[in-house]
Design a protein around this nucleic acid. Structure first.
Length: 816
DNA sequence: AGCACGCCGACT
DNA sequence: GTCGGCGTGCTC
C-alpha cells in the first residue's frame, strides 16, 4: 500500500501591503513544481492573490488554519534561495511589507491580482434611463454600460467614494453582475516561429520560383526566424505552409530573448594596467574566495577604475560565480556594458528601467538560467537572481541615484554591501569622490582603501581657477554669469578647435518669474513652488509636478499685471549666452529637457565625439562619469546652487559635483582647464574641490557631522506624512509626533533617540499633496530600528488613505 | 489592498 | 427604525 503523501508547507510572501509571511499547504499533485522563488496563486482572506515562495513554512499561529496553494504561475522560480536573505533583510530594515519588496525586486508585470469586476445586465440597461432611479445609481449604470469596471475604477470615474452597499443592492436587484477577475500578469516568455530544413535529408529537388528562393534563404541561414525571413523574401509567409506540408521545410517555435543590446561589439584584450591599477587588482583578486571584504577604490577622475572592475570581474567569474556591477544611471550602463561585452562577450546581462518589462524579464531569465553570470545594472539590479556571488562592484558609489525614492526607499549601495556580506563575496566600491559614509568606514577599519592617485598615461589633472562672481553682481546680460576669465578661456579653446563644457545645476531659462507690478513670483497652481520659464517650450513649468502654462500672455496671479521679470539662471539662458558670445560655435544642451527621449543622451554623446558640438551646456547629468576626450575647458557657471541647500549633505554634494565636473576636463591628451565661478570663493567645499583635495574636505566635513550627530557619525530616519487633506495630514503628523515622544519617554532604552518635528516640509504642497515630516536621529542603526519597529509596527496607528498617510525613509538622502 | 463588521448621525 | 458614512481588524 502506498504511503500517504505528505503535503509540504511553504512560507509565502503575498504581493500585498501586508507585513509578515504566511504558510500554505502544497497539494501533492503540484508539490514538485513549488520551490523557493516560485510564483504561486493563493487564497488570501476572501480573495486570492499572487505570492512568492521564500522557503519551508511552519505551523500557522493558533487559531489560523492552513489553506492550500491553488496554482503555480509561470514556468519556474523567479529567484534563488541565495537572494531570500537579502529580501528578508530589506523588508525588515526598511520596514516594508515583504511581498512588496519581492515585487520591487522582480521585473515589472509579474504580480497578478484579483478583484471584483462589475458589469451591467440587460435589466440594468433598462433601469439606466429610469428617471425615478437616484442620480448616483443612474451614473453608475451609465458608466458600466460602457464596459465592466473595478470598484476603484468606478470610484475614479465618479470622482467619489462608491458605497459597497449600493453595489450589493444593484447586484441583488439583478441590474449589475459581479465576478472575480484575475488581472493577468503581463510579462511572459516570448516565443518566435522559426523555419529550418528537415534534418538528415539529402539534397531534395528545390522547388522553382519564389518557393525556391525561400528554401534557399532557409538553407543559407541554417534556421531563421519567420520575421527575418519575411524581411529578406517579401511575402515568404504565403509559401511556408505549402512548403512545410510538402516536407521541404520544418516550422517550429522556440523561446527567444528580446534583445536590448545594440550592434555587436569588437572584442578587446586586457591592456597592461598602470602600477596603481595592478596593485589594486592584485589586492582585490587576492581576497576573492576568502569571504566577505569591502574595498573602496578611491581613484581620481580618469585614473582607469573601469579596467580594475573588468579584471576583478573576470577573475571572480572564473569559477562560475556571479558578478554584480551597479552603475548609477542608464547612459553610464551603456558605456560599462560595451566595455564588459568587449571583454566577456555574451555572458553579460543588463537590467535597468530603460528596458521594457518584457526585455527586463528576458534578461532576468538569462541570469536565472545562468546564461549570463555578469549583471550590469542600475539600483534595482542589486536583486538580480545570480545565486552564488563572487564579487559585487559599485561604480560611482557616492552617487545619489543609488537611493530609491518612493515605493520602498532603499539604498542600492548599502544593499550591495549587505548582499556581499551574506554571500561571503568581495565588494568593490569605486569613486573619485567617495561618499563620506564609505570613507568613514575606511577610517574605522571596516573597508580597505585602494588608491589610483594618477590619471592613466600620465595625463595631468586639470588646473582649476576660482572666479569670484561677486565682482559681476551689478552687471547685466551674459557678463553677469560668464566672467571675462571664462569667456577668454572659452575663446582660446574654441579657436584651437577644442571643446568646452559649461555646467549649471539648474535647467530652464529663467528660474524665477516675478511680477513687475507687485513683485509676486509666479507660482504653480498645484505646488508651493515657483515656476521656471522654459524658452524652448515657450511655457512656464513646475519642476515638482510637471504643471505647465503658456508663456505667451501670462499674467501675474496676484495683481493681473502682464509684465513679468525673468529672473534667475538656468541652462537655457547659459546656452543662449554662449551662442551670443561665440556666434560661430555650435552649442548644444544636455539636461532633462533635451534628453527625455529614449536614446537622446547617447545621441548627444555621439555628436560630441564626432565633434559636431563645440560647446556643451548641461546640468549634473554631464558630471557623471562620462568620458569627454576632447573637452579642454570646463566652466562651472555657478558653484553655489547646491551649497545653499538647507540639507546637512549640501557640502558633500557640492564637493562631489564640482570635483566630478572638473574631472571632465582634459581626459584626452591635451591638458584641461576649469573655471569655477562662485559667490563663496573661500568656502572649504569650493577650495577643496579646486584642489581635488578629498582628504581635506573629509576632515572638515566629518568634524561637522560628528559634532552635530549627523550620518555617518549617527543614523537617521525620516517619517513623511502626506496626503490630499491638509488638516488630516497635519493631525496625523502631530499625533505621530506625540506617539514617538511618548515611546521615547516610557522606555529609557530610547533616551538616545532624538525626535525632531513634526514640521511642515520646505515645499509644503506638491501636486496637491500636503507634506509634513518628522526626523529621527539615533547613535546607531540597531536602536533606531527597534524604535521604528515599536512605533510603526507594534502599535495601532490610524488608518491611512490618500487623504493622509505615513511613509518611512530609513537612511534618508534627500531631506526636503 | 480590499473586504466585512460595527458604530454613529440624519433621513424616509 | 435603517441607510450610508467612517473607523478598525484581518488575511496562513
Amino acid at each position: 500500500m502506498p504511503q500517504a503523501a505528505v503535503e509540504p508547507i511553504v512560507e509565502v510572501a503575498v504581493a500585498l501591503p501586508v507585513h509578515g509571511t504566511f504558510s500554505y499547504r502544497v497539494p501533492v499533485e503540484i508539490a514538485g513544481l513549488v520551490e523557493v522563488g516560485s510564483r504561486v496563486w493563493v487564497p488570501f482572506g476572501r480573495r486570492r492573490a499572487t505570492g512568492f515562495v521564500l522557503g519551508e513554512g511552519g505551523a500557522p499561529p493558533a487559531g489560523a488554519e492552513l489553506r492550500a496553494v491553488l496554482d503555480v504561475l509561470g514556468d519556474g522560480p523567479l529567484f534563488t534561495a541565495a537572494e531570500v536573505p537579502l529580501l528578508r533583510w530589506a523588508a525588515d530594515y526598511y520596514l516594508h511589507p515583504i511581498g512588496e519588496v519581492v515585487a520591487t525586486a522582480l521585473p515589472g508585470g509579474l504580480t497578478a491580482t484579483e478583484t471584483a469586476v462589475f458589469s451591467i445586465t440587460d435589466e440594468g440597461r433598462r433601469r439606466r434611463r429610469d428617471p425615478k432611479a437616484p442620480p448616483l445609481v443612474r451614473q453608475v449604470l451609465e458608466r458600466l454600460a460602457e464596459g465592466p469596471l473595478r470598484r476603484s475604477e468606478i470610484r475614479r470615474a465618479l470622482g467619489r467614494e462608491m458605497p459597497r452597499a449600493l453595489l450589493g443592492l444593484l447586484e441583488r436587484r439583478g441590474e449589475i453582475r459581479r465576478e472575480n477577475r484575475r488581472l493577468e500578469s503581463r510579462s511572459r516568455p516570448r516565443r518566435e516561429r522559426f523555419a529550418r530544413l528537415p534534418a538528415g535529408e539529402a539534397a531534395r529537388p528545390r522547388p522553382a520560383g519564389k518557393k525556391g528562393r525561400v528554401v534557399a534563404e532557409i538553407e543559407a541561414a541554417g534556421e531563421i526566424a519567420l520575421a527575418a525571413l519575411a524581411r529578406r523574401v517579401p511575402n515568404a509567409g504565403a509559401h511556408l505552409r505549402a512548403l512545410a506540408a510538402a516536407g521541404a521545410i520544418e516550422l517550429f517555435s522556440r523561446r527567444v530573448f528580446r534583445d536590448p543590446f545594440g550592434e555587436p561589439i569588437a572584442p578587446d584584450a586586457p591592456p597592461a594596467p598602470t602600477p596603481a591599477q595592478a596593485e589594486a587588482i592584485a589586492a582585490v583578486c587576492a581576497a576573492l574566495g576568502r569571504g566577505f571584504e569591502v574595498f573602496l577604490l578611491n581613484g581620481v577622475t580618469g585614473s582607469g577604475k573601469t579596467e580594475v572592475y573588468l579584471q576583478v570581474a573576470g577573475r571572480a567569474a572564473e569559477g562560475g560565480r556571479g558578478v554584480l556591477v551597479l552603475v548609477p544611471e542608464i547612459a553610464l550602463i551603456t558605456q560599462m556594458e560595451r566595455r564588459f561585452r568587449a571583454r566577456f562577450g555574451e555572458g553579460v546581462a543588463v537590467l535597468h528601467s530603460g528596458l521594457s518589462d518584457g526585455e527586463r524579464y528576458d534578461q532576468w531569465c538569462r541570469v536565472l538560467g545562468r546564461e549570463a553570470r555578469i549583471v550590469i545594472g542600475a539600483r534595482s539590479a542589486v536583486f538580480a537572481p545570480l545565486g552564488e556571488l563572487g564579487a559585487v562592484i559599485v561604480d560611482e558609489e557616492h552617487d545619489d541615484s543609488y537611493k530609491q525614492e518612493g515605493g520602498m526607499p532603499y539604498h542600492a549601495r548599502d544593499l550591495a554591501v549587505l548582499r556581499g556580506r551574506q554571500a561571503g563575496a568581495v565588494v568593490l566600491l569605486g569613486s573619485a569622490t567617495p561618499s563620506l559614509q564609505s570613507f568613514y568606514n575606511v577610517r574605522r577599519g571596516k573597508y580597505r582603501e585602494l588608491r589610483l592617485p594618477r590619471r592613466v598615461e600620465a595625463r595631468p589633472m586639470p588646473a582649476v581657477e576660482v572666479v569670484d562672481l561677486r565682482r559681476m553682481r551689478d552687471l547685466r546680460g551674459p557678463g553677469r554669469f560668464i566672467s571675462p576669465e571664462l569667456a577668454r578661456a572659452m575663446g582660446e579653446a574654441l579657436s584651437r578647435g577644442e571643446q568646452v563644457l559649461l555646467f549649471l545645476n539648474r535647467r530652464g531659462y529663467a528660474t524665477l518669474a516675478v511680477c513687475a507690478g507687485c513683485g509676486a513670483p509666479l507660482r504653480c497652481r498645484h505646488c508651493d513652488l515657483a515656476l521656471t520659464l522654459h524658452r524652448a517650450a515657450e511655457a512656464f513649468h513646475c519642476h515638482a509636478c510637471g504643471f505647465s502654462r503658456p508663456a505667451a500672455g501670462a499674467a501675474c496671479d496676484a495683481c493681473g499685471a502682464d509684465k513679468l521679470k525673468r529672473l534667475g539662471l538656468g541652462t537655457e539662458k547659459v546656452e543662449a549666452a554662449a551662442a551670443a558670445l561665440f556666434p560661430g560655435a555650435r552649442v548644444a544642451r544636455m539636461d532633462r529637457d533635451t534628453t527625455r527621449r529614449k536614446g537622446a543622451v547617447l545621441e548627444l554623446l555621439k555628436r560630441l565625439r564626432a565633434r559636431e558640438i563645440d560647446v556643451l551646456v548641461g546640468t549634473q547629468m554631464v558630471a557623471k562619469g562620462h568620458d569627454f576626450p576632447e573637452i579642454t575647458v570646463v566652466g562651472i557657471v555657478c558653484a553655489d546652487l547646491t551649497l545653499s541647500f538647507p540639507d546637512f549633505r549640501a557640502g558633500e554634494r557640492t564637493f562631489q559635483l564640482l570635483a566630478q565636473v572638473a574631472g571632465r576636463a582634459g581626459r584626452g591628451d591635451r591638458p584641461g582647464r576649469v573655471i569655477l565661478q562662485t559667490y563663496n570663493p573661500g568656502h572649504f567645499c569650493i577650495t577643496a574641490a579646486r584642489d581635488q583635495d578629498f582628504e581635506g574636505f573629509y576632515r572638515r566635513e566629518i568634524g561637522f557631522r560628528e559634532a552635530l550627530g549627523y550620518p555617518p557619525a549617527a543614523r537617521m530616519a525620516q517619517l513623511r506624512v502626506a496626503g490630499t487633506d491638509p488638516a488630516r495630514v497635519r493631525g496625523m503628523a502631530e499625533e505621530l509626533g506625540r506617539t514617538l515622544r511618548a515611546l521615547r519617554e516610557e522606555d529609557p532604552g530610547f533616551a538616545a533617540v532624538q525626535v525632531m518635528g513634526p514640521v511642515e516640509a520646505a515645499v509644503a504642497r506638491v501636486a496637491e499633496n500636503y507634506r509634513w515630516q518628522i526626523l529621527l536621529k539615533a547613535p546607531g542603526s540597531g536602536i533606531l530600528h527597534r524604535f521604528l519597529g515599536r512605533a510603526l509596527l507594534d502599535r495601532r496607528r490610524p488608518r491611512e488613505d490618500r487623504r493622509a498617510h505615513v511613509a518611512v525613509d530609513v537612511d534618508p538622502v534627500f531631506l526636503l
